[in-house]
Design a protein around this nucleic acid. Structure first.
Lengths: 150, 150
DNA sequence: GAAATTATGTTGTATTTGCAACAAAGTATA
DNA sequence: TATACTTTGTTGCAAATACAACATAATTTC
């Protein structure tokens, strides 16, 4: 059995570790950059959806978002029609930080993909999207308390 | 820019989350399965190398390993020639747990790769290995306190 | 439209994670 | 061989993570 998922785990941990170290000087503590990026790219998103998107526990997302707001990177606005939800938007400060993050992430992408041809990158991306879609189904299933049989 | 790394992050978090939930009933707390697998497959490895392999902080590995030993999944043996290092070996209990973990991981692999042809899996694996090698260089560089310029 | 269910959000608590700082063994250098 | 440097391991501390349990709004079902 090809250990595809093991490779993915190694890559993900290495990159996350690098990013966390590199963003420390911008007051962005561990993990926060991931949320901020998504909020900048999907302004108005609510935290429940954000957690699903990122694939992280609801409560973890809640606290990360609270801290992002506390530190002035984002704003939580009440929705007009739905009293339950709070929509998330970047502040100017958050949007500025997003620019660094993009630069760093783009660089990491470049390093990670160096030596691959454009078409290899394309193939990899498409394959990964399929893997991700397969995986997120099971994640949601298990997260809701269901049991997988194997 | 293709967000290859973002896909990788999502997949890794989802899978890790699933595994952690599924291994809870075997007294394997969060993260531990990764170490145990590697120790079973590389008996005699030392914790410093294990941390490098997994791409996790040295001190995190140290504590995860300590707990694995405390719970009887592994054993730490002194080396004859080198007083500094401790070699790690699975116990019977650890090796048994490894069997579950394999079954679970294989299942996750199968789910994740469902719909991909054998040759697509092969291509994906080879590409990911290259990405991983690229990435681990930078990880080691940054982990040692060096600064990347971008 | 009342009751049951689902969606969204929060807080309490235990555990994991990782940086900083240290210690000691081993290795390289002069 | 003495000194500096590197490797390996540990502990203190602060922060992130996630499960459980709860609260309340929204939606579905009867």
């Amino acid at each position: 059995m090809k250990e595809v998922l093991r490779e993915i785990g190694m890559i993900a941990r290495a990159l996350d570790s690098i990013s966390n170290i590199e963003f420390k000087e911008y007051e962005l503590s561990k993990g926060q950059y991931i949320y901020l990026v998504r909020i900048c790219e999907t302004p108005g998103i609510i935290q429940e959806k954000l957690a699903e998107m990122i694939k992280v526990d609801r409560t973890t997302a809640a606290r990360a978002i609270k801290k992002l707001a506390l530190n002035g990177f984002i704003e939580r606005r009440d929705d007009e029609n739905n009293k339950k939800i709070k929509r998330l938007f970047p502040t100017d400060k958050g949007y500025n930080a997003y620019q660094f993050i993009r630069r760093e992430n783009d660089f990491s992408n470049k390093v990670a993909l160096s030596g691959l041809t454009e078409s290899e990158v394309d193939i990899l991306f498409k394959l990964l999207q399929r893997v991700r879609k397969n995986t997120e189904k099971d994640w949601e299933y298990v997260k809701k308390g269901n049991k997988r049989i194997y």
